[in-house]
Design a protein around this nucleic acid. Structure first.
Lengths: 165, 165
DNA sequence: CAAGATACGTCAGCCTTGTTGACATTCCAA
DNA sequence: TTGGAATGTCAACAAGGCTGACGTATCTTG
């Protein structure tokens, strides 16, 4: 890693390289969301519903406030999405036992079904990309993405796969 | 690269790894757009205006149709954005000389100014991330992103930095 | 116990940015 | 000369962000 500072290798930091990185993010993100979007378009849901389903699947029993922090939207915005998911029987909201102000969110079987369908599509593309690029590229990919996050989001990114608090 | 197929190394393709990649994309994209978004919020523009400015800056004289293909939105949607940019004197639209149906788009000095401001903010974050991760990670990052694109978008991603047709 | 803080839900209204559909104009090319 | 391509524009609508305000439980703390 010492050669990073040896002049010639700083070519990867030119404005042209950075612009290409920006464009790569733009085009890749389109591909990243394309498959779930196609599926969602056939029903009455959108990307916001997918995001909620994903993180509820990831952390069953998570609270509304927790989800709010992860998604980075207002409670009014999340509530609109959550309400339809609960009405449609995809998500269940249960009052907390220790703190009864909280609502714990879990997926129903139906909810798990849709989440699986969306997740399968998105993971398939991810898997193909990972396989094509190889494990070393994947490691680099993850490093750069993580460095690109706001510190707040980086904490949440790590927290999402830690044991329940 | 032969070790990719040797069993143990396929661990980077587990569902858990893929989910983490998905979440990394989600959180990183937020960081990616955060700085320009903050600037844009202080004026009457949004992310759509930024995208248009970026690609016009990148390819001065590009046609509306060309831009439409790159941005992947409807002409009505792009037109609304473009109209305000032209009215506000950030973008100039010139009738084509060989084909007078076409409109060639270029930035005015004022437009270049705003584009620079937005671009500087976004590149600064990109540069910090690149520097932190190092050149090898950056190469992997680019490889995975490219593999994630739709073939159509991949072509446009490459075409954007080729000589004028 | 009273008062304040917290978690959640909801109403109302606004903005950006995407969509369809319909239609007019201009002008190249067969 | 005529069909089709490129462009522009009007209207209507929807998703999904936002702010502000308010109400109601329910905890927590002085």
């Amino acid at each position: 890693m010492a050669e990073v500072h040896s002049g010639e290798n700083l070519l990867f930091l030119t404005d042209e390289q950075l612009r290409q990185g920006i464009e790569a993010m733009f085009f890749a993100y389109r591909g990243f969301t394309a498959d779930p979007d196609r599926i969602l378009a056939t029903m009455a849901y959108g990307r916001a519903h997918h995001r909620a389903l994903h993180f509820i699947a990831r952390r069953p029993g998570t609270t509304v406030n927790n989800l709010l922090g992860i998604l980075g939207v207002t409670k009014q915005s999340l509530n609109r999405v959550l309400r339809t998911l609960i009405e449609d029987g995809l998500v269940e909201s249960q009052q907390g036992k220790t703190d009864r102000r909280e609502r714990h969110l879990t997926l129903t079987d139906k909810g798990r079904g849709l989440e699986q369908t969306l997740s399968d599509a998105q993971r398939a593309r991810m898997r193909a990309a990972y396989r094509k690029a190889g494990p070393e590229a994947v490691a680099g990919f993850r490093q750069v993405l993580e460095a690109m996050m706001d510190p707040d989001m980086r904490r949440k990114y790590h927290a999402i796969r830690e044991a329940d608090t």
